[in-house]
């Protein structure tokens, strides 16, 4: 029976590229299947949350630090991007770069002093930061336009075609950035840096003993995480085309945390599936939308208690993958 399990998992492991390619093809060609504007919008929204989940996963899943301030990094990325498209117009893509840079910088400023706090205190500090950013956005009128917010945010233009929601451009634009985010997370996961993060998550002290500069590693991860949240912030701004201080609330941060915990901290496929389920369901069942946060709350509690490894448990169940040409006798 156990052998069968392993064979099944190995079979899945082999076929995963085929399944992955099929899913990718389906996802990319979604606008051609006559998907309505609304479906495309929901899909784009799912993608943006997927980027956010990957971003929080870097710090929560890999390094074991929970942040509830990701909405603030989105806000900083979005506002910086907007300022550099309106007040100092430098073009869409450079402005997007500036937005990401500002988010990363904010990650550094918040992370450097606060990441030495122990778990729960760090959560509180990020919550406070999130509220603070909101108040600053409300009061710094010359930059953020205050509570009035900023409308008609420019959309990217590629080869002379404006990417809108109706022509599917926004969707593909999101997919591009989602792919970039997945690649970055993948690269980090299998790098020396990534292994250091996992070591910190499993045992901070032991990691320190092993010669890992834990503070520097955590702060670096946080900066990457904030930068990805900045990407999501810019995408969000170009999709909704309207940003005001109340756009980026604690609710968003909580939803992201919920996705990460539901999807299984550390697992990337889990992240994507979990985003799809949690963001699509309130749209699918609008009658249940009222109960949305009750369900999110339940998920947080149930997952933390019963399945901390998440819905799709990471790699732990698979047998260690041996290099080519090496065999062991399984008896």
């Amino acid at each position: 029976m156990k052998n069968f399990d392993i064979k099944l998992l190995e079979g899945l492991e082999k076929s995963k590229y085929i399944v992955g390619a099929a899913v990718a093809l389906l996802v990319i060609s979604l606008p051609f299947f006559g998907a309505s504007q609304y479906l495309l919008r929901v899909a784009t929204n799912i993608g943006i949350y997927a980027i956010l989940a990957l971003s929080l996963n870097l710090i929560t899943g890999y390094a074991g630090q929970v942040s509830l301030g990701h909405a603030a990094f989105m806000a900083i990325g979005a506002y910086a991007f907007i300022v550099f498209t309106t007040k100092y117009p430098i073009g869409f893509f450079p402005a997007m770069g500036v937005g990401i840079l500002f988010s990363a910088l904010a990650g550094l400023i918040l992370g450097a002093p606060t990441l030495r706090l122990s778990g729960a205190y760090f959560v509180i500090a990020t919550t406070g930061f999130s509220e603070l950013v909101k108040v600053i956005a409300l009061n710094w009128k010359s930059v953020t336009n205050g509570a009035t917010g900023i409308r008609n945010i420019i959309r990217p233009t590629v080869f002379g075609i404006e990417l809108t929601n109706a022509n599917g451009g926004q969707y593909w634009f999101m997919l591009f950035w989602l792919a970039v985010s997945i690649y970055i997370c993948y690269a980090i996961k299998y790098s020396k840096f990534g292994r250091a993060l996992f070591a910190i998550r499993d045992d901070d002290l032991a990691a320190k003993m092993a010669g890992i500069n834990t503070s520097l590693t955590k702060v670096t991860a946080f900066v990457f995480s904030a930068a990805l949240a900045g990407v999501a912030g810019v995408l969000y701004a170009t999709m909704t085309r309207y940003v005001e201080p109340n756009t980026f609330t604690m609710d968003i941060s909580t939803i992201i945390l919920c996705i990460v915990i539901f999807g299984g901290m550390g697992s990337m496929v889990g992240m994507l599936i979990s985003t799809f389920l949690l963001i699509a369901f309130p749209e699918a069942l609008r009658a249940l939308a009222m109960y949305r946060f009750i369900i999110y709350g339940l998920i947080l509690i149930i997952m933390v208690r019963f399945r901390q490894q998440g819905l799709i448990s990471g790699v732990s169940k698979l047998p260690y993958k041996l290099p080519k040409g090496v065999y062991i006798d399984r008896g």
């Binding site: 929970v66 778990g119 009222m290 009750i294 999110y296 947080l300 509690i301 933390v304 901390q308």
Partner: peptide, 23 residues
Amino acid sequence: SDSVTVLITAIGFNYILLNLCLV
């Protein structure tokens, strides 16, 4: 279970109560 696990549970319960009140 560490302080973060407990904190997440409390945040989850907070959301449940708040939204039950709304409903």
